[in-house]
Design a protein around this nucleic acid. Structure first.
Lengths: 240, 240
DNA sequence: AAAATAGTGTCTCTTAGACACTATTCC
DNA sequence: GGAATAGTGTCTAAGAGACACTATTTT
């Protein structure tokens, strides 16, 4: 199909992508933030912000490509769970003009998150504790709001999916998985019900390995399929 | 805060908004589509498409304003349930260049949907039956895909929310509400369980009116709060 | 043996499904 | 009274919470 180049010379909004990168370390939910450049001609200089940036129509085939590019730039992680949580756009969120952002959230496995700590530009990229619905730092743009929505969405989804499994290292015990769920949800879960629920799904497989400590060793498990969460559905049941 | 106008002269994607407008008529799930202009310099002339268009940075304060503006232009409905389902963007979905769309879905109450039928530009705006995951017509752009996602999201959400209540006229019976749920889900539900579930929530209030027919009259109900769905949550319960 | 945590079993509670039974209207 | 659908009640099944009991390791 060929088309004449149309007269679409009206003003276009800026198009950006932001990624809320979650991880659990020391049983605490964390989010990765970057420091904005100190250049005073940039908005919000030196403030912390979500990982993100402009869509590059030359580089990026689609929005997810922008997200993965930004994710890789800051974390050097190529494959991670990535899910879009929505988009926002208005005239005032960016002082440079009408702008839109397509927001994703990502879950980094602990081992990947650990690597980062000792990585390069460590001052500019940092993990922040999630407290309630945000972090205890002012964020650039409307990022505090975007983060709050991401946290809410994450917690909501963890109620009925196996998402936190993506935060685990390769081998882990059921107790460790439960602790991760609890860190995300910010509330304790009942041990027996948790085990039953998780083991009833096709999510994990037991390995021949055990984690030893000053007590009975715990079975080590690993994820079965790698990047799709399991849904615990308890809704209307289909009629037989 | 003041900023110098930055050097952001790189190419920007087009920014559009599309709305998937649902309704249930004659116990069938319907979606509202519009016919693209016949002007051959426009992409997909004369094809059916979702309601939508470009963000107008002069007119629209935010993306939802664009959505409501487009919704009103085609339906003359000012208030309707409106929810964003995500955004899409890539280099190829629009032949005019890299474009993004922010997709919303909306639910029109039956009485509003009825009005439309006899409205103006009736040839250009039409209700289509939803069959499986789409309509039996080719759609412009990637709209068939967007529609499929919207239908899936709708069905998914109806499993654990009261969304179909927004499709009802002011007064309705429980049987009618159940039929609407069934139309959306495309499967039958059990009568007793449905009644128990709905009445257990704070969604409806009984009115003094009854719907009479050639049998026992049915109580007429109306929605309590107007634009927020009720969630039937059955997940991890909080520990006491 | 004591401490500590892993793992299991059992009872209860809640909610949905199945299905029968009662209620109320029109004809 | 018969037909038809509204509305209720009762039993069962499944899964989660509560919680105790057993199992296996280190010290």
């Amino acid at each position: 199909m060929t088309h004449v180049q149309p007269n679409l010379s009206f003003e276009k909004p800026f198009t950006t992508v932001d990624i809320v990168i979650f991880s659990v370390q020391d049983n605490k939910l964390k989010v990765l933030l970057v420091k904005r450049p100190s250049n005073a001609s940039e908005p919000y200089p030196n403030q912390w912000a979500l990982v993100g940036g402009f869509v590059d129509v030359q580089l990026d085939a689609d929005l997810e490509a922008t997200a993965r590019r930004k994710l890789f730039e800051k974390t050097h992680v190529k494959t991670a769970y990535l899910e879009q949580i929505g988009s926002w756009g208005n005239a005032t969120r960016d002082p440079r003009g009408w702008s839109t952002t397509h927001v994703y959230f990502s879950m980094l496995a602990m081992n990947h998150a650990e690597q980062l700590k000792s990585g390069a530009n460590a001052q500019d990229v940092q993990w922040f504790d999630v407290v309630e619905n945000g972090v205890q730092t002012a964020l650039a743009f409307d990022h505090a709001h975007l983060l709050a929505v991401a946290i809410e969405r994450l917690r909501n989804k963890v109620e009925y999916t196996s998402l936190p499994a993506f935060l685990m290292p390769t081998l882990f015990t059921l107790k460790e998985l439960q602790s991760t769920f609890e860190a995300v949800l910010a509330r304790p879960l009942e041990r027996s019900a948790f085990r039953t629920r998780i083991l009833a799904t096709d999510l994990l497989e037991a390995t021949p390995h055990f984690k030893t400590a000053a007590n009975r060793p715990a079975q080590l498990y690993q994820l079965k399929s790698n990047l799709q969460p399991v849904y615990f559905q308890r809704t209307f049941n289909p009629i037989k």
